[in-house]
Design a protein around this nucleic acid. Sequence first.
DNA 1: TATCCTTTGAAGCAA
DNA 2: TTGCTTCAAAGGATA
Length: 302
Amino acid sequence: MYKETVYSAFNLLMHYPAPSGAGQHPQPQPPLHKASQPPHSVPQLSPLYEHFSNPHPAQAAADISQKQGVHRPLQTPDLSGFYSLTSGSMGQLPHTVSWPSPPLYPLSPSCGYRQHFPAPTAAPGAPYPRFTHPSLMLGSGVPGHPSAIPHPAIVPSSGKQDLQPYDRGLKTQAESKAEKEVKKPTIKKPLNAFMLYMKEMRAKVIAECTLKESAAINQILGRRWHALSREEQAKYYELARKERQLHMQLYPGWSARDNYGKKKRRSREKHQESTTGGKRNAFGTYPEKAAAPVPFLPMTVL
DNA sequence: TATCCTTTGAAGCAA
DNA sequence: TTGCTTCAAAGGATA
C-alpha cells in the first residue's frame, strides 16, 4: 500500500514539476492600507467594483444605522457573484519569495512531489502517519467552482456560520455586554491568493489524490501553487486584492488584530516548534530543518 | 470539544 | 525596516 502510494506519487512528478525560474518573482504589490486606498485606483470596472459603488442593502442599512447611532448587526451580504475568477485587470504580484518546504507527508497518487519521503518506520506509535486507504468519498459540500464559494467573512464567535441576532431582551447592562461579547460575530480575515486557490482546487486534489487529510492536501496545493505560471497566479492575487478591498468597504473599522488571540494554542513552545522549522513530520518526529535551497542565478557573461 | 497539522500570504507588532 | 507571530480554510487525528 505504502509502496504503491510512493510509486504513484512519482508518476505525478511529471505532471506537476517544481517551479522553474525560481527567483523570478513578480514585483511587489502595494499593501492595501486603509489610508492608501484611493477609490480612483480601480483600473477597470468589474461586478465587484460595481458593488463598491452600490453597496449591498444590508451594508447600506448598517451604515445608516451607524450614522444614526443605532446598533444593528451587519448581515452577511450576498457576494456569490464576486467569487468567480474574472479576467479583469491584473494587479502586480507580491514580491515575497517563498520556497516550498520538503514534504512531510507521504503521498498518494496525483500528488506531485519530487522529493523523498521520510522513512515510514521513523516513529512507531507516533500520531502520524495518518494515511488511510484512499477513500472515494467526494462532494460533501465541497465547492467545485469558485462561484459557489460563500463569503466567509462573518461567522459567530462559536465558529459556525449561522448568524444569530443580538439578544435585545431586558437585561442588565453587564449581562448584555457579556452576552454581546460571546455572541458577537467574528469578522474573518479576507482570504489571500493562496487561500482562494486552495478553495478552488481542493476538491480537484481530493479527487485526484484520493486524500482526505487537509494537511496532506495543503502540501500538494502548496506544490502546485509554486508550479503555477505567473499569469495563473495573477488571477488569484487579483481576486485576493479585490477581496481585501471589498472587505475594507464592508468592514471599515475591522482590523486583523481583532481576531488575535481567538485561536487558543496548547502551548507556546509547541507552536514555536511548528513555526521555526522544528515541525513534527508525518511520522511524529521532528526532522532537522531543511537547508535553504540555492536560488537560481542566471550566469553572467564576463 | 478544542487544538494540531500543513500550506501561502497579509497584517500586526516589537525591537 | 526587519523579523517574528497570528490567522485565514480544510478535515482527520489527537489531547
